Amino acid sequence: MDFQLTHEQKMLQESIKKMVDRDINPILRAHDPDKPLTREATRQILDICQPFGFTGLRLPEEAGGVGVNALTFGLMKEMLPPVVSFICGGQETTAVRIYYGGTPEQRERYIPAILKGDKLGSTGSTEPNSGSDPRAIRTRAIRDGDHMVINGQKVWASNAAICDFMLVIANASEDPKGPSKLIRIIADKEDAPFVTRKTPTLGFKQGNLGEAFFDNYRAPIRNVVGGEDDASAQKVMHQTWLVQRPMMGLLAVNMAQKALDSAVQYSRERVMFGRKIGGFQLVQQLLSEISTAVTTSRLLCYYALDCIDKDINANQLSAMAKRYSIAACQKAISLAMEVHGAMGISTELGLEELYRDVRMLPIPDGTNQILTLIEGRELTGISAIR
């Protein structure tokens, strides 16, 4: 049991960190922190991230991807600013979901364009009344000749507001009261337009999280991924969620680490009552709690990803890693704000932005409540949902 990163892993993380400081952070700072990045800025960021493979980390090499394992995926994504991770994730996850089950023609048409950032992709699975329960999806896709007619709404989709196409998870059952028949369909604006818009949110304001509306949208039948009886649709979604949950935890770790670094530096510089506040016992207690939250969260996420790589049942660990890490890192950022006193709540320092951003993370890929029920099911063998 080795808890140390290898020399190669450390070098990989360091090279990504340098790339972020040198190339990405200036782009983020040049744009209004309270407004979504433009399409041009998003493309620019993808161009920078593409040589590191961020748009196709989980795709096999023969598909043009990098084919890294889950742990390496996490080690790399932890180094990215979370808003950039969501940008790349919108591309990468969509590519993975098209690759597995997609036809050779679909792969050839979309995968290279996604990897290069020539096409901005998004995946639409969540709906106003369907999130953690994909069988409750109401967006309908009914065949009409050589097309699938789509009606419905998708929400909380990364890159939706600026996407060129969306991989839509829809219900193809013609009986609204019958069992769900999930399929995946590519809705491409080159085939026909559909309406998208940015969703105003508490955090990640530079992102393009949004929703899409389909009103008798006609997608060519060739755009159906996995066939009209796509038995793998839910399995593919589950497998991507399994990795993405610890990944969300590592986004929180990224932010909490920034808060810790800032708090430690401030404690060494700020003087009160004639001495640096880092010498006060209560300040050291706050720093210790923040550091413990960062370390335990990071290790738990790494462990969950390592178990996925070793093909160990990680349903419980994946859920646990996301739920625990985000909660711990939310508290850590709040404590770091306390170390800074009044400066902690200033917009100048940036901790309040981290505080808003980290609060966004409990929602994607399973809420705390759903993750708790997954953990309970794995422990007892009894589902509290069905």
Rank of each mutant, 00 (worst) to 15 (best):
Q4Y: 04
Q9N: 05
Q9H: 07
L12T: 13
Q13H: 03
K18F: 13
M19H: 04
V20I: 15
V20Q: 11
R22L: 03
R22C: 01
I24Q: 01
I27H: 05
A30I: 09
D32V: 03
K35S: 12
P36S: 05
P36H: 07
L37M: 12
T38M: 03
R43F: 00
I48H: 04
F52T: 08
F54D: 02
T55A: 04
G56F: 00
R58H: 04
L59I: 00
P60H: 13
A63E: 15
V68A: 06
F73G: 06
G74R: 06
L80A: 05
P81R: 07
S85I: 02
I87Q: 04
C88H: 06
G90C: 01
Q91D: 08
E92Q: 07
T94P: 11
I98Y: 09
G102P: 08
G102W: 15
E105W: 15
R107S: 08
I111A: 06
P112D: 13
K116P: 03
G117H: 10
D118L: 06
T123S: 12
T123E: 04
N129D: 14
N129I: 10
R135F: 09
I137V: 15
R140L: 03
I142Q: 10
R143M: 12
G145R: 01
V149K: 03
W156G: 01
S158F: 01
N159E: 08
A161Y: 10
C163M: 11
F165Y: 14
L167R: 07
E174F: 00
K177T: 11
K181P: 05
K181W: 05
L182I: 15
I183H: 05
I186T: 00
T196W: 02
T196Q: 02
F204T: 02
D215A: 14
D215S: 10
D215T: 14
N216M: 05
N223Q: 03
A233H: 00
K235L: 15
M237I: 15
Q239A: 11
M248Y: 11
L250M: 15
L250D: 08
V253T: 12
Q257V: 10
D261Q: 14
S262I: 07
V264R: 06
Y266H: 09
R270V: 06
F273K: 01
F273R: 01
G278C: 14
L282I: 11
V283C: 09
Q284N: 15
L286I: 13
L287N: 10
L287E: 13
A293S: 13
V294Y: 12
T295D: 14
S297Q: 05
L300M: 15
L300P: 12
C307P: 03
D309T: 05
K310M: 06
I312G: 02
I312S: 02
I312D: 03
S325T: 11
S325R: 11
A327G: 12
C329A: 09
C329R: 09
M337D: 07
E338S: 12
V339A: 09
G341R: 06
G344M: 04
S346K: 07
S346I: 01
D357T: 13
L361I: 07
I363T: 08
G366P: 05
G366N: 03
Q369K: 09
E375L: 07
I382A: 08
A384P: 02
I385G: 03
R386H: 12
R386Y: 08
